[in-house]
Write a protein that binds this DNA or RNA. Structure first.
Lengths: 185, 185
DNA sequence: ACCTGAACACCGTTCAAGT
DNA sequence: ACCTGAACACCGTTCAAGT
């Protein structure tokens, strides 16, 4: 059974470790997943992981990039739907990653690399939300605060789960209140 | 130098360990603070800590209760100020605890005791916010979604720091949009 | 270039023993 | 009741050595 030569092999093996790490990080959590268990599931020794990744945080970042790429590709599929539908869809998709959201926040305090990833992610998310709010006719002066509120509510929905009706109520109210002009009562 | 007898002593020592743990958890983070370092700073052996607290999560919960009690006492001081001022004040006060906010979310996944504390805390926070929104004349049907949005935005402000003007802009916009009736543009 | 066995320093927690 | 010294099982990471 002949195997491919070098550069091909390398990517394959890296991908295999990455796939194992992703599954364990999502299912069991980053903290509960030891390098030893990842190695065992991938059929290698711990040291081998360190040949492909600098450390456990580097492995985390690789997993996050993998998930982000996948999520963006799927997001392109529904880019034409109304804002609230898209937000609900995003929350539904990302909900299973709620453990990783916390992990990123926690590790960002200790790892500069994770911190940088977190910053980059927020910049990306804010760009996407800003586009939407502008199209909905939001006042330019209110944009930064609106973006923050939008981001925080989505993050909150990911980390504090509720049922489908609850999620929809929060998102619909949010979108309604942010995209209509208020009048004094 | 005669010391007090038993029950007094016990509380004192427990408090001392607690005070040390609180300072280290806040300054260096929960993960970076080992039981060994807490013991050293408190002038005892690690095992002694386990005489007063079940485990590290139990110590965390005791610290959280200590901080919550203190925060509620201070909050009573400004209970008559307008909603947005009170929210800004709360964020300013709790900002230094942003590491613990993440810690609670992370540990809640692994420790049922921390999970229970987190649930209780949210119930308390939601009660406070609900009172305010009712007084501001919010429609009863919108309350749950509004409470969620308010909670998530406060939590977001604690974990994603910005300058004083940024915080004020987010809170003012939030309060304005939640406490006025929207009309179609 | 790639992988391993064995070690290192550290972690939270426990136990048997002391007073 | 309170506290300790010593150990336990585990952790992320590294090193010297192999191919």
């Amino acid at each position: 059974m002949p195997r491919n030569r070098r550069p091909q092999d390398r990517e394959e093996k890296r991908e295999e470790i990455l796939a194992v790490a992703q599954r364990l990080f999502i299912d069991d959590g980053y903290e509960s997943t030891s390098m030893g268990r990842i190695a065992k599931h991938a059929g290698v020794t711990v040291n081998t992981i360190y040949w492909y990744f600098r450390d456990k945080d580097d492995l985390l970042i690789a997993v996050l990039d993998r998930l982000l790429t996948e999520a963006l590709a799927q997001y392109a599929t529904i880019a034409d739907r109304p804002l609230n539908e898209r937000l609900l869809w995003a929350v539904d998709q990302l909900e299973r990653l709620h453990g990783l959201v916390n992990t990123v926040h926690t590790r960002a305090a200790a790892s500069p690399a994770v911190h940088a990833w977190h910053t980059g992610f927020h910049e990306l998310a804010e760009t996407l939300i800003a586009d939407d709010l502008r199209k909905a006719g939001a006042a330019e002066a209110d944009l930064p605060a609106m973006i923050a509120i939008g981001t925080f509510v989505i993050e909150g929905l990911l980390t504090h789960r509720r049922d489908e009706a609850g999620k929809r109520a929060v998102i619909d109210l949010l979108v309604h209140r942010l995209t209509t002009t208020p009048t004094r009562t």
